[in-house]
Write a protein that binds this DNA or RNA. Structure first.
Length: 609
DNA sequence: ACGACGCGCCAC
DNA sequence: AAACGTGGCGCGTCGT
């Protein structure tokens, strides 16, 4: 047995590294007398749990002052035994380690999840802000520094130095570092101890908030999301490869055109602005640092295109602007999406994206590796890469105008409630109230933008920029909007007053605490609405799992659920999904729009067989 | 060479 | 009085 002793938060901690088979006896002896609640952590070769060749290298258990580090290759049975020993475990970000032991040790999410408390979830419920936003932070390091020891480290920096010493980097070091490297072993052992100590402090903080139901709910949701991540989603490799080749060809074609105008690097804003000025174009917008702005909207203007890439026919299209726009788009779609699909797939051509259940300040979920919540929706080709399992079809259900409905429920403005309950198009209703019976399509667009502005906290200037309508007209529309729906404005005022203008958090109907930034208290309405809409979708996911629909679920996308099922069952499964999503929220009907897509996700966006 | 950071752009 | 929210990620730039 190898030992390390270290000071942590004013007391000594002991880290024991199991080296030989006889050391396991000491681990056994410790575990059977150890506290019921133990910290657990793993060290692995990387983050891509499902990639070929992936390995879990170390497994660590610990209490407040003692940790055992086990090498999984040697002592996998002891690790499994410990995980099944009836203890409860504290894990920081169980969504990761839980899937690691599910995939690589066969200790499943189903058996372990009920015995786990995740400090990431607790931390987010105490304070969802990152350090940079003025919060405590939700990572192991900031939590350790805040709750355990001002000088605590999660070892990332120290390990990075070790990686460098062996000619590795952050990406390769975790797989390459010697398994008996002392820095590696020490920090591996510290992590479960930190998790336990952080847990106790967070549990104490949560006691005051009376949100035990949220703690339980978020763990339940996490389990459902982990099963979705484990299931993964199949990709059509030949389609993806062919589309890549096509987009790469397009990018190359347009790069060559740009090069003819002196732009050798289409990502260099400097080259682009200089070349455009050289062609006699006038650039009027500047970036924050004073450089000429040549972003998408500026280039679209020069290329005579509107925001939807449709010709405006107001001028001759600048060929350089057009070439840069198209080259950039093709390149981004190729690398950020299609390339990632192929790189991140497992041996069975499935993606297992990381689904963060409690990610944004508002609790909104995120999906990364690859980022499947942000695939282009303007066309179907990228989404066409995601396909249903054999014999199945992709189905989806999205909430209809969920944020406006939530806003109506929370502010109870009579006209807004009436507008939603009447079932008429909300933006038509608003335009009629604001501009009268004979409103034009332009006025409807303004009314729609004002509505979004209310949800996001935007003002007249932003709406002017978006719609192109004159400022005076936008201001008039906002005034009329406020007069029509006074409850929305009142909600914002009430929230700011109730929170002491940012000194207290906004509390959502679910009990979630949402701290405000003092210089942006106008965001209170948006936080409340966004978070509550998220809670509705999260509850629907948990309900679907309880209703036996879990096996169909693929992805959550903010206000919609992507799923799959055998074609013959599509109507029935969609009905079940709708039953979980739909309902009454504070007197406002929440309704979803279920749809059968077809063989691929792209089939919901225009792809055909 | 690597990593932190700002910008821009994709989504809802 | 006015103030557009939440993410992920690839690129270029800059600092180590």
């Amino acid at each position: 047995m190898k030992h390390y002793r270290q000071q942590l938060g004013g007391s000594d901690v002991d880290i024991n590294v199991v080296e030989r088979d006889e050391d396991i006896d000491a681990f056994h002896d410790w575990l059977v007398t150890a506290p019921h609640l133990l910290g657990f952590d793993t060290e692995t070769t990387g983050l891509d749990i499902y990639s070929p060749g992936y390995e879990v290298r170390l497994a660590q258990f610990g209490d407040h002052r003692t940790a055992y580090v086990l090498r999984v290759e040697q002592h996998a049975e002891a690790v499994k035994w410990a995980l099944r020993s009836g203890h409860r475990f504290v894990v920081h970000n169980y969504a990761f380690d839980g899937l690691v032991v599910d995939r690589h040790l066969g200790v499943t999410v189903e058996e372990l999840a009920p015995n786990v408390v995740d400090t990431h979830i607790l931390a987010h419920l105490v304070d969802p802000r990152q350090q940079a936003e003025g919060g405590i932070g939700t990572g192991l390091k900031p939590l350790a520094q805040h709750y355990v020891d001002r000088n605590a480290s999660d070892g990332q920096k120290e390990l990075q130095a070790e990686f460098r010493a062996i000619g590795a980097n952050k990406a390769t070091g975790w797989a390459k570092i010697n398994i008996d490297n002392p820095v590696y072993e020490l920090y591996a052992g510290l992590d479960p101890i930190l998790a336990v100590r952080i847990h106790d402090e967070l549990a104490l903080a949560l006691k005051d908030y009376d949100i035990e139901h949220l703690v339980e709910f978020e763990h339940e949701l996490q389990r459902v999301l982990m099963l979705m991540q484990r299931r993964g989603i199949r990709i059509d490799v030949p389609w993806t490869s062919e589309l890549r080749a096509e987009l790469q060809g397009e990018a190359e074609h347009y790069r060559a055109i740009a090069a003819r105008y002196g732009v050798s690097n289409i990502n260099s804003t400097k080259q682009i602005s200089e070349a455009l000025l050289g062609m006699g174009e006038t650039l009027t917008e500047h970036t924050a640092s004073g450089a000429y702005k040549v972003d998408k909207s500026v280039l679209q203007g020069l290329a005579d295109l509107d925001a939807n890439w449709k010709p405006l026919e107001t001028r001759d299209s600048n060929p350089l602007a057009e070439a840069v726009l198209k080259a950039k788009r093709s390149e981004k779609w190729d690398t950020a999406y299609l390339g990632a699909f192929l790189d991140l797939r497992d041996a069975d051509d499935r993606l297992h994206p990381t689904i963060g259940g409690l990610q944004a300040r508002t609790g909104r979920m995120s999906i990364s590796h690859p980022p499947l919540q942000q695939l282009p929706s303007s066309e179907w080709r990228i989404r066409r890469s995601m396909i249903a399992d054999p014999g199945q079809v992709i189905i989806a259900a999205d909430y209809s105008q969920v944020e406006m409905r939530v806003l109506a429920a929370l502010c109870q403005d009579p006209n807004l409630v009436d507008a939603i309950k009447s079932g008429t198009d909300l933006h038509d209703y608003t335009a009629r109230m604001v501009f009268g019976e004979d409103f034009t399509s332009k006025q409807r667009k303004i009314a729609k933008s004002v509505g979004f502005g209310k949800v996001y906290g935007g003002g007249a200037a932003t709406i002017t920029r978006q719609t192109g309508a004159p400022l005076a007209q936008v201001k008039e529309a906002i005034a009329a909007y406020d007069a029509t729906f006074p409850g929305i404005k009142r909600l914002g005022h009430d929230l700011q007053r109730q929170t002491g203008y940012g000194s207290l958090p906004v509390i959502t109907p679910s009990g979630r605490r949402l701290p405000l930034d003092r210089d942006r208290t106008y965001a209170a309405t948006n936080y409340l609405v966004q978070s509550t809409a998220r809670d509705l979708l999260a509850q629907a996911l948990v309900d679907m799992d309880s209703a036996g629909l879990g096996e169909h679920l693929l992805l959550p996308v903010h206000d919609e659920i992507i799923a799959q099922c055998p074609e013959a069952d599509a109507d029935e499964v969609l009905r079940g999904i709708a039953e979980c999503m739909d309902g009454d929220f504070m007197g406002i009907p929440i309704v979803s729009d279920p749809e059968k897509y077809g063989r691929s996700w792209g089939h919901g966006y225009g792809a055909e067989d």
